[in-house]
Amino acid sequence: MAMAASSRLLWASRAAAYLRISTFPRAFSTVLKDLKYAETHEWVKVEGDSATVGITDHAQDHLGDVVYVELPEVGISVSQGKNFGAVESVKATSDINSPVSGEVVEVNQKLSEEPGLVNASPFDKGWVIKVKLSDSGELSSLMDDEKYSKFCEEEDSH
């Protein structure tokens, strides 16, 4: 019943291999100008002390059809770089990390009914959480659109 450790490693190597191999020419993903980006492919849009967080077009494109989004509870604290939820596609599970620290003030309940919004509209209707920022200084550690585009290109060309 328990899968052998070797199978776990197989999954790991398969998963890691994915990083390197999905390099066939594809259309360039959209990157929006006024957003900030994390290396784990989340975006954040800041208005005052409110930050909207989602996953990028590049991320949804690589993930494939999203079938489930695990959302956090409103009121919990999230920390920059730490996991707060998950996105599931047909074959893969993927953590979502928060690009900023603060308190979750709203979650996108629509994703419970329509997880595919993450694919169809990653920067708009597919947003995941809204956070009340606790440290706006953290934003300087994130990438701007240009840097993030380069980051994705480099990652795909590996």
């Binding site: 490693l9 790991a12 998963a15 890691a16 994915y18 492919h41 993930l63 596609s89 599970t93």
Partner: peptide, 21 residues
């Protein structure tokens, strides 16, 4: 996501470590 998040997450999970690694 297949490019990174999924793989990183799967690899992390498979390796039995939950934090960013």
């Amino acid at each position: 996501m297949r490019g990174l998040l999924a793989c990183a997450a799967l690899a992390r999970r498979a390796a039995g470590s939950s934090g960013a690694a």
